[in-house]
């Protein structure tokens, strides 16, 4: 592997990082609108408002950069990048197709992905604290509490897949995948996806940014490009969680298409899951803070433990 190849992969990751979230965001605009009997954006770009998010980006880039006088300037400015960049690293490690169609195969890929995703939350905490705003601080606290409740079921569910595959490498997991994993790991898949949603603070787990209670949580004081980066991190997060669920639980590139087209299959699964994320957002109301915590600790974690036991026993039985 030479330097040029590596640079190419990095740039490709960056391009994916900047385009697919826009696709998901646009899908959210349109799907949410139609689920509510509306049309959504129709003007930007001409055909059904396809360029709406590009227009938004251009608008954000021209906005004045405002840092509140009471804020902790440096941390306030740094927070969006801290919250966004971990997802970039995660994207590098997610395999898309067989035979090395991956940004960079990492031996401890699964563990790496889980570890790095948790770092993004520090950015949100920084934003919440540095804003000099009561509501932002509450948002930051809720973010932290939510992370600490949902990271654990996510890690446990991921461990179940690692047990089934006997490896932590993401391409290795997909290689080991068999169709019967779907019924076998279904509890784990549910726990992982739900916990992923909660970690992204997507409805119905959007307590930390509950607009009707604490405005926009940690992002209240943000404008312009910094706000755009926070939004981008949310949509990259959807991409990452959907892609990870597809890769870990739905078999990534395995499908009826021939192997050369496997990447198409991964993308299809990812977008189907992203659609589910949007769908859930439209359908369900927000969980209350206490319901949220109780759900994590009394439903998801026991479920994840059950899945672990199930995986362990079956794996030892069949090996």
């Amino acid at each position: 592997m030479n330097l040029f190849d590596t640079v190419l992969r990095c740039v490709a990751t960056l391009v994916v990082f900047l385009t697919l979230p826009l696709v998901i965001g646009q899908t959210e605009h349109k799907v949410m609108a139609h689920m509510q009997g509306r049309l959504g954006p129709m003007y930007a770009g001409g055909f059904h408002g396809w360029a709406q998010l590009i227009a938004d980006g251009v608008k954000f880039a021209q906005k004045e950069d405002i840092v509140p006088a009471g804020a902790d300037r440096r941390i306030f400015q740094l927070a969006p990048a801290v919250s966004l960049l971990p997802y970039l690293f995660v994207l590098l490690a997610i395999p898309v197709g067989p035979d090395g169609f991956v940004g960079q195969a990492i031996d401890a890929g699964l563990f790496f992905v889980l570890a790095v995703m948790g770092v993004g939350v520090i950015g949100k905490l920084m934003a919440g604290w540095a804003s000099a705003n009561k509501f932002s601080l509450l948002g930051g606290l809720r973010t932290a509490a939510q992370l600490m409740s949902y990271e654990l079921p996510m890690v446990l569910a991921a461990a179940s897949v690692a047990m089934a595959a006997g490896t932590l490498s993401l391409p290795g997991i997909v290689d080991a995948w068999q169709w019967y994993w779907i019924p076998w790991q279904i509890i784990g898949a549910f726990v992982f996806f739900t916990a992923g949603l909660a970690e992204l603070q997507r409805p119905p787990f959007d307590m930390p940014v509950a607009d009707s209670e604490i405005i926009f949580g940690a992002y209240t004081e943000y404008t312009g490009l910094r706000f755009a980066l926070f939004l981008l991190s949310e949509y990259v997060g959807i991409l990452v969680v959907s892609a990870l669920t597809a890769v870990l639980f739905l078999g990534g590139w395995h499908g009826p298409l021939p192997d050369q087209l496997g990447w198409l299959w991964t993308l299809l699964k990812t977008f189907a899951l992203a659609f589910v994320v949007i769908w859930l957002r439209v359908t369900y109301p927000r969980l209350r803070e206490d319901q949220l915590m109780r759900f994590a600790w009394t439903v998801l974690i026991p479920l994840a433990l059950v899945q672990l036991a199930l995986t362990g026993i079956i794996k030892v039985a069949i090996s």
Binding site: F111, A162, G166
Partner: peptide, 9 residues
Amino acid sequence: LFPWATVFA
């Protein structure tokens, strides 16, 4: 669980 998952089977 992770180092265990890679070896236990």
